[in-house]
Design a protein around this nucleic acid. Sequence first.
RNA 1: GCCCUCAUCGUCUAUCGGUUAGGACAGGAGAUUCUCAAUCUUCAAAGCGGGGUUCGAUUCCCCGUGGGGGCACCA
Length: 465
Amino acid sequence: MSPVRVRFAPSPTGFFHIGSARTALFNWLYARHMGGVFILRIEDTDKERNSDAFLNLIYASLNWLGLNWDEGPKVGGNGGGDFGPYRQSERGAVYKKYVDQLLANGRAYEKDGAIWFKLLGDRYEVFDEHRKKTVTKVTLPPVVMADAIRGRVERLEDEDFVIVRSDGNPVFHLVNVVDDIAMQVTHIIRGEDHLSNTSKHVHLYDGFGVKPPAFAHIPLILKQNGPGKMSKRDQGALIEEYQRRGYLPEALVNFLCLLGWNPGDDREKMPIEEIIRLFDLPSVNQSNARFDDKKLAHMNLGYLLALTPDDFVGRARAYFSRVGVSGVAAALALAASADYFREVMLLCQPKIKGMDELPTYSGYFFNDDFEIDPKVREKVLGKGDPLACWQELLAALPTLDFSSDLAIEDGIKALALSRGRGFGDYQPVARLAVSGMAAGPSITGMFRVLGRDRVMVRMSRFGAV
RNA sequence: GCCCUCAUCGUCUAUCGGUUAGGACAGGAGAUUCUCAAUCUUCAAAGCGGGGUUCGAUUCCCCGUGGGGGCACCA
């Protein structure tokens, strides 16, 4: 049996979005599951709308998601292969050869300067109400497709169609089929929006005398709010955005897998190896799925909490590096010692919901000139006996044991006991004085990481304001 | 308008003729707690409608309805 060869064939005419990513992902999963080949083919025949920036975005996004391609343009460690070139703009000669074949065997003809594919059957004219013009139709049986996800699909294709434009450029249907033949693609996994095109494609395969590959049309991702499928203009649609916001790619991939597929049981958060092992075409859903950013965020949190300390700190540093140029907090964080940075990050890991919270959440650890939120100040000072607590705590700091969170907690509790208070009486004002914020890591951890000197300075300064 | 396609909680989904219709996210309540989260417990929440087939339909078939996609010398 010949090995499975699948391809992802994006066109560099816009930002790389969720829908494309999932199509790429399902192709990649199937290839990996079957031990086959994942091909990246760039469909850049639309000269007007192509751009190198979008092309590079495709490479960058696939890399970020971990969807490495075995054949395709050589980028990083990816690509190569014996069926290139893998950019359609460089395959003109191939298309010409195939078109000539059609012309020679009578399955294509010229009209109005363009080349049309010829359907086999009797022709008749009819007025098309929708398009407001007379069209020539062909009497022939419908195309029957065996879709791996949808089962049997039947559709009548009864009009000849253009395969090469009058300007000499081949159209999508032609190049798509030619390349799938030339690159020996065995399974075409693509969005359901292509289902109606498939009848044309099957006729083309027939014209070339080639048995069509297997088709698998995956359901579409619907936009979170409002009607219709998700497009690159919709909120949360761009892969780039998740990358920028510090989402973990493995979380996004896991989430995307669950949009239209499931392992057959209740499991959701799964390592990619397990997903590869279980993934298969028949288990892909048939109905469209609505995008849900809350669930994605939850998935991201799950992965975030599960990161090992070293991994988390490394990724946090990478995130700070990326935003560093534009953020003061990030720049200061990067300037701190590696040990201190690590301690701060590990304090924050269990508390944040995403990497993008890190600069704000941890800013005061690195910046002594942090601002005190006036609203928080008002709230904290308006409750209980905060100033007395502040003074008592300040006085106790020089002798407080800073050796561990527990020691700090015991120390403050002892103080509280001696004054007839509770730990909770000191916490709000201490947090305000030391961080300026209403929420954050445990006050004991915060004290320990900042160290006695910094805590003292901040506590003292608080009274002066 | 024509063609294709889909249909279980608000959302993602399990069920492959017989279940108290399960899980997850979101939402409500409670527990825990030094803030905020997280976590744990818990509550509420679904088979689009109508016909069949069958001893029995969420499940199979048909018709409606609703959603989605397509109908170019775009991809």
